[in-house]
């Protein structure tokens, strides 16, 4: 398939997943805010800006980080490239450029979602009924994935979609874990309090993981939550699971045998997978969860770059670089 098309499908998929995750971030924070006796808005909302967007970009346009400003920044702010609106717009532009490759149903779903988002601005449900807004939006994203799997041939283009989606999801799960761990564990004496339990439940619910978590663990503890999100083999939003899926997609694209590599993208992802395969949660926490997630995100970016170099940046050999410079 065309490199440009593979690139567009990969990003279409990443942007939808990103928008969905931002909706989850905001939603869980809104829930937490409801349970808090003495809300410390800045402490609760500022970290969201840091993990999803650009802090300096935010402070240029907003004076304080509170529920109202951060929610606006993350939902409808078109100047923020990582707002839900911007992501969905980018997803749609990508979809538009590959309409002939994806199924019409997929295109219609992306198009409809953006129209819905645009129309919703007029009656502003983000402020009047945020719970309904975010759950509706999440459903629209779920519908997109369902349509994708059910209507698109599971060939090379579909595998690029799967690759983009899983890499993005792994990244976002690591971020949601990072920021929540930071907020929910302010001081040691919070641990074990009823309030603490509520927070972990909210976190798990925000990634649709509460019920699945409960099937694995009987108690709610920070260590177990971290283990569940990082190392569970079967939960579809856990990082280990996402990387395994991404790895399968890469191998389906190359046709290479599993547990070996034929290009740099497979090599880097394979290494990262093995690290996670032999990691345990105690070791991770002992070295500091935040530090661990930081390193993980950097390596995941490396995988993303390798995907770009391997598949999307196909440059013709020698002479064409001269040709290229002629056109500039």
């Amino acid at each position: 398939m065309l490199s440009r098309v593979a690139d567009a499908i990969y990003w279409l998929s990443r942007y939808i997943e990103r928008a969905e995750n931002i909706a989850r971030f905001v939603d869980v924070n809104l829930h937490l805010a409801l349970d808090q006796a003495e809300p410390d808005e800045d402490r609760q909302w500022a970290p969201l800006v840091a993990v999803t967007g650009d802090r300096s970009d935010f402070s240029e346009r907003y004076e304080v980080a509170n529920q109202k400003t951060v929610v606006r920044f993350l939902t409808y702010d078109r100047a923020n490239p990582n707002s839900i609106y911007s992501c969905l717009w980018a997803a749609r532009e990508n979809a538009r450029s590959v309409r002939e490759v994806i199924s019409s149903e997929m295109w219609e779903q992306v198009n409809r979602s953006l129209i819905m988002l645009r129309d919703a601005q007029t009656y502003n449900p983000v402020e009047t009924d945020p719970a309904a807004f975010f759950s509706h939006f999440r459903e629209a994203c779920h519908l997109f994935w369902g349509i994708t799997d059910a209507t698109m041939t599971h060939g090379e283009p579909w595998n690029f979609a799967r690759l983009g989606r899983m890499l993005e999801r792994a990244d976002k799960t690591s971020r949601i874990l990072d920021v929540k761990y930071f907020i929910i564990l302010p001081t040691a004496d919070y641990v074990g309090s009823p309030y603490d339990n509520l927070q972990w439940v909210a976190l798990l619910k925000s990634i649709s993981g509460y019920e699945m978590y409960r099937k694995c663990y009987h108690d709610i503890s920070p260590d177990h939550v971290a283990e569940f999100l990082l190392l569970n083999d079967e939960f579809p939003r856990s990082i280990r699971f996402c990387l395994a899926e991404a790895d399968q997609a890469l191998h389906a694209i190359s046709g290479w045998r599993a547990a070996a590599f034929s290009n740099r993208a497979e090599q880097q992802l394979g290494r990262l997978r093995s690290e996670l395969a032999y990691a345990d949660v105690d070791g991770i926490l002992a070295g500091g969860l935040h530090q661990y997630l930081d390193r993980f995100q950097a390596k995941l970016n490396g995988v993303g770059n390798a995907v770009f170099d391997t598949f999307f940046a196909i440059q013709p050999i020698r002479r064409q670089t001269q040709m290229g410079s002629l056109t500039q």
Partner: peptide, 17 residues
């Protein structure tokens, strides 16, 4: 997506030209 190479028109794909 297209490039002239070796006297032919080629398109850039994920598997080369």
């Amino acid at each position: 997506d297209l490039v002239v190479h070796d006297g032919c028109v080629m398109m850039r794909t994920t598997r080369g030209l």
